[in-house]
């Protein structure tokens, strides 16, 4: 674990190079937040870059009253939401076409080609389900499930009450469950069926 406070102090004293350590510490988290929010790798890279540059510029406004990560995720979330709203404004009636959907890599190198295809499809289904979720639900679900933040942190990032975070997460899960079922996700059916079989035993 890096000593965040000392790095932040160094950056504030004009040592720009020290900022690279903060980027390295948070790049995966910031990138994945952007990726789930905008569903496009190239956009996610640009948004993550923008978020870090804004964090660097605005570092003197970080008062160290909240955790740096909370401040950074809040800034990143705002960058993504701004981007999504601009995009919406630009193309008020544009539907996502198939080739715009993410082509997802399979992380496990060992499966057979058949398994690989299945895994890729399952990942694409989940990614596409996330993409179909409304922004407010996608945001809480990403902050909770991808970034593993507490309700309190999510509440601070999104300016919500903790109770609202809790109920919005339940609704988000219910919504994505419906989307996945509608998309005929085999693994999803399988998992529910398997559960039933276990119950029957």
């Amino acid at each position: 674990m890096i000593n965040e406070k000392s790095i932040i102090d160094q950056v504030l004293q004009g040592n720009d190079e020290a900022f690279a350590e903060l980027v390295k510490a948070y790049e995966d988290k910031v990138y994945n937040l952007c990726l789930r929010m905008c569903s496009d790798r190239e956009d996610a890279r640009d948004l993550a870059q923008e978020a870090f540059v804004k964090a660097w510029r605005g570092l003197r406004f970080y008062k160290q009253e909240s955790a740096f990560s909370t401040w950074l995720f809040r800034l990143t979330t705002n960058v993504c939401i701004d981007y999504l709203r601009q995009k919406k404004r630009r193309s008020a009636v544009s539907l996502t076409t198939d080739d715009e959907l993410l082509q997802l890599d399979v992380p496990d190198p060992s499966p057979t080609p058949e398994e690989q295809v299945q895994q890729t499809m399952a990942r694409q289904t989940v990614a596409s389900a996330m993409e179909q979720l409304e922004e407010e639900f996608r945001t809480v679900l990403t902050l909770r499930v991808v970034e593993e933040l507490s309700y309190e942190e999510i509440a601070e990032i999104l300016d919500l009450k903790v109770g609202t975070v809790k109920s919005r997460l339940a609704r988000a899960r219910e919504k994505i469950k419906k989307i996945l079922l509608k998309s005929g996700n085999d693994l999803f059916d399988h998992s529910v069926k398997k559960n039933r079989e276990e119950d029957a035993l």
Partner: peptide, 16 residues
């Protein structure tokens, strides 16, 4: 189903 969906979302993570 929720567990499955959560896992699926978490598994989407990639390296920056």
């Amino acid at each position: 189903a929720f567990e499955y969906a959560d896992q699926g979302i978490a598994d989407l993570q990639e390296k920056a």
